[in-house]
Computed example of a mutant assay.
Amino acid sequence: MNNFLNDYKNKLCSLINNIDNNILISIINKIDETQNKSKLYVIGNGGSAATASHMANDLGVGLKIRGIRNLNIESLSDNSSVCTCIANDIGYENIFYTQLKDKLKKDDVIIAISCSGNSENIIKAVKYAKTIGATIIGATGFDGGKLKELSDINFHVDAPKGEYGIVEDVHMILDHIIYSYYISLKPETKSKYTME
C-alpha cells in the first residue's frame, strides 16, 4: 500500500511541477478580458462537471463577495433539469451545444474540461463556439484528444491514458491556482457582504 501511495503522490507532484506558467498566465489574462464585457461558460462531464461547478463558484461568487472580480461565469453542467431534458429529447451530445446556441457571443470564453478530450458533447459545443469566434480554453489529459487541437489555450495534463483521478486532481488545482492568484491581489480577503 505504501508503494502505491508514494507513487500516486510522486506522480501528482511531478505533474504539478511541470505546469507551464505561460499557459497559466494566458488563461488568467483571457479570463481578465471578460470582466464587465463578456461571459465565461464552463463545461464538463462527470468529475469534470464537478470541477466546472467548483470553478464557477470560486471565480464567480468567491471573487465577487470579496470585491476582487465580478466575472459573469456559468457552469452549463449545473442545471440537471435542462441537461436531462436536452439529453432525453434530442441526445446527450447536445446538452452544451443547445444551451450555447444563439446565445454565445464572439467575445465569450468557453472553458472546456475533458480528460480524454474526446467527449462528444464537449467537442460539439467547442466546434460551434469556434464558428462564432469565441475563445476556447481546454483542460485535457492523456493525449489531449480533439479538444487539445481545437483549443486556443490548452492546459494539458500529460498523464497515462485511463488515469482519470490524477488528471482531475490537476484540473481542480488549475481552478485553485487561478482563484488564489486573484485572492493574492487583495490582502484583505474577508467578504464585503455581512450576514444579517
Rank of each mutant, 00 (worst) to 15 (best):
I137S: 08
H156Y: 07
V170T: 12
H171Y: 04
D143H: 12
D169R: 11
D169G: 05
K124P: 00
F155G: 03
K146P: 00
G162K: 15
V126E: 10
G165W: 07
M172H: 14
Y128K: 04
I122F: 02
V170S: 05
S114N: 09
G165P: 11
G144T: 05
E120V: 06
D152T: 07
E149S: 05
N118P: 00
K130P: 11
A159P: 02
T135L: 15
I111E: 09
T140H: 10
I110F: 00
L150W: 09
D143A: 03
F155L: 10
V157C: 01
G117V: 04
T131E: 13
A139P: 00
V170K: 03
L150T: 03
D169M: 05
G145K: 11
G144Q: 08
G117M: 07
V167N: 00
L150A: 08
D143L: 00
I132E: 08
Y164P: 04
E120W: 00
I153R: 11
H156I: 02
E149C: 01
I110C: 04
G165D: 06
P160D: 14
G141D: 06
H156T: 02
S114I: 01
I137Y: 13
E149A: 00
S119M: 13
F142C: 10
I132H: 11
A125E: 07
D143Q: 13
G138Q: 03
I111P: 08
I113A: 02
G165L: 05
